[in-house]
Design a protein around this nucleic acid. Sequence first.
DNA 1: ATGACTCAATTCTTGAGA
Length: 257
Amino acid sequence: MRVASFNINGIKARLPRLLEWLEETRPSVACLQEIKTQDEGFPASEFEKIGYRAIWHGQKGFNGVAILADGADPVEVQRGLAGEPEDEHSRYIEADVFGVRVACIYLPNGNPQPGPKFDYKLRWMDRLRSRMREIAAEEVPAVVIGDYNVVPNDCDVWSAAAMAPDALMQPASRDAYRRLLHDGWTDALAMHNPQGGIWTFWDYQAGAWQRDHGFRIDHALLSPELADRLAGCGVDKEYRGREKASDHAPVWVALRE
DNA sequence: ATGACTCAATTCTTGAGA
């Protein structure tokens, strides 16, 4: 089976591109971020027409996450993270599907930093870590996949110097990400590509795509029970170059049965 | 260079993204 993640930057604007990607690459599970629609605007019937069933957590205007499964119903386990009841951002949804726990995340960007948005990012990462430790304690095969908005290492960005002031690059952001790895989670792309140089995002601005000025911020973290089953992983880079593309490219992990 | 581009919103301008 393959579990994929795609920050689509607006499901309404991206629907033709998204359906095309699903039909061409046919992931078993597809986790989406930045659907940017309220729950009632989610085009579930369009996905059912091509054999995918979904759960989603929307929000007006921005954020929003969804989990799609090929020929199966994702069984929702949780939406949102504990620890901050007043937080109304739709950034987390978790389900059991095909015998795997799948959590789809859209981690706060945190810019500008320093400031309240960066503080929120770090608090959100603490809350995520708490939930991931709970999942790890269940000792189930699990993947926490999505847009982490963290560049883990300097080899994961076209220019560490140019990006240094960004919230995605801050030591506090990177430390919080490393704590997840220290808890026993495996960064699938990093394990298979330790040399770096793999990007999942290219800004719309300043010809970033044409210049290959990208970075790696979409990650798949595997629990020990699932890391043993990792057969391969990759980035569907070509989709970033199509008409009306998202600024992210899809990432995926292939798992042995 | 406080830029560049794109999306959503009862759109003609602003907030958000990264």
